[in-house]
């Protein structure tokens, strides 16, 4: 099966602005990579539960108490732009 990837659509979904020359380069690369991924489809996985984490992990609980990890100043310290105690962004509507 040959995969046709609509790079423009995928870039839109991923919120990635693309230059036109980038788009055509990715088009060829992504299609070739997905063709290679096709190998996975040949493995029989009938009835196999997907594995999303590799070790058995038990749920860990902590006491339901308030803890302060970061202060407001800390949280704002890397803001590209801020206004008082708020993150500032250009108007988007």
């Amino acid at each position: 099966m040959d995969i046709m990837i609509d790079v423009k659509k995928v870039a839109d979904l991923a919120r990635l602005h693309m230059q036109p020359d980038e788009e055509s380069k990715y088009q060829a690369q992504l299609s070739a990579i997905f063709k290679y991924f096709e190998e996975v489809a040949l493995i029989d996985t009938n009835g196999i539960e997907p594995l999303t984490t590799p070790t058995e992990i038990e749920q860990v609980w902590r006491a339901d108490e308030k803890v302060t990890e970061l202060t407001t100043e800390d949280a704002l310290s890397n803001a590209p732009a801020k206004s008082g105690q708020l993150f500032r962004v250009p108007p988007v509507v």
Binding site: I5, V7, V10, A11, L13, A14, L16, E22, Y26, Q29, L30, I33, F34, F37, V40, A41, I43, T45, I48, E49, P50, L51, T52, P54
Partner: peptide
């Protein structure tokens, strides 16, 4: 950007089962 797009496509509607879920099943094997 290449990898974000690979993942976005593999998780996108209509492809999730064929790619992500399938890969996780083979991961268990």
């Amino acid at each position: 950007k290449r990898r974000i797009m690979l993942g976005t496509f593999a998780l996108s509607s209509g492809y999730y089962d064929a790619y992500y879920k399938k890969a996780c099943q083979v991961r268990r094997l």
